[in-house]
């Protein structure tokens, strides 16, 4: 059986760098660069850096 084709778009998880475990999810093109942005973390109520989590098993 032929392998299923990988989708062009992937869902990624942007993890708060404040170690609260809070995250945002975004979709991006598989070929694009990993995402990072400054966004609001409601647990500590500040704007902090969010970095894309490395995907497992890929």
């Amino acid at each position: 059986m032929a392998k299923k084709a990988k989708s062009r778009i992937i869902n990624v998880r942007l993890l708060s760098m404040a170690m609260t475990g809070y995250f945002y999810t975004f979709t991006r093109a598989r070929t694009a660069l990993p995402m990072s942005m400054i966004k609001y973390d409601p647990i500590i109520r500040r704007r902090v850096l969010f970095l894309e989590q490395k995907r497992k098993g890929k």
């Binding site: 760098m17 404040a18 170690m19 609260t20 990072s36 989590q53 490395k54």
Partner: peptide
Amino acid sequence: KRRNAMLEMPNLIREWKKVGKRDWTKFPK
């Protein structure tokens, strides 16, 4: 852990801005 991360946050953001998001390589697991 959270407190230390927040104390480091201005430095981290400064560094991130300096490197630029296109060249940033340190991503969390």
